[in-house]
Amino acid sequence: MKNIYWILAFFLLTFTGDRIGGWMLESLVENSQFRYSRMYRGEAKADMLLVGNSRGLSFYQPYMEEFTGKSTFNLSYSAMPMNLADALVRDYIDQYGAPEYMVVDVTLCDRLNPQLIAGFNCYTPFSKRLSELIYETSPKVQIGGQVSHLFRNNGEIFQRALYYYNRLDEDWLLNREISTRLKSDVASVEAPTVELVPEMVEALSRLVSDAQSMGVKVRLVVSPYYLPFAQKIQNLDEMVAQVEAATGLEVFDYSRAMDRDVEFGDYQHINVKGSKTFISLLKHDGVLP
């Protein structure tokens, strides 16, 4: 066989393998128990929608449901930016209608994260909105996903979907206690700031407004930071004021509300123990029903 035919055979094999592999991976994503797979599959109907970045995972669902008696669905993900949360919430509402409550940890307005958004490429077969957002933030990734279906599933989000193929992710939260090293080093941490990205604050404001017009009770919160760390953050109050001004809603600020070391996993995240305290505080203050 002439070399040129082998080259053609190579391209044909590469393309066919890519499509078959891509189809298999897409099936894995579709049938996973990972939260976004369940959402796009139509198995995520809930009374209360929880939105945030890794700190939003402090809305520990088992406790939340036990305390409120409401079913919950948590859309939070580590380092999630507001524009991605916006697309996911709108997809959720399109599919299930407006939830009764929506609780948002506003610190997800602190970043743009095109890399994470690109990771959601594996959900583009199920969401035109996500596809458009990825095209807007990382056009090469979106086009690459059209060219190679294997590439579409290249990323951490796909890996998580695979990991949670047969198990639920609703009961995951940090289970460690903050290390002695971190505790002792907090004194030397240079005064941090939480800088909100104006576009993300605007996206939050639009989402809040649209959700309220559909009858959703929106609650904005700042979940707790490790107290000695929170005391070093210079602009927490300004941040809260900025969000309140943009959305016209009160922000329930719990950033300095908890002070027991055993309730934190690190400076920015409470652990399972801390979550129980946090949720009871939310309930006590009437933030949760």
């Binding site: 066989m1 082998w6 055979a9 190579f10 094999l13 590469t14 590439f151």
Partner: peptide, 22 residues
């Protein structure tokens, strides 16, 4: 030839699926 093109295709699939671009 068959093994050769198959091995090249496998590398490309693995790079597509597990490579880090950017």
């Amino acid at each position: 030839p068959v093994f050769r093109i198959a091995s090249f295709a496998v590398i490309i699939w693995v790079i597509s699926f597990l490579g880090t671009f950017g």
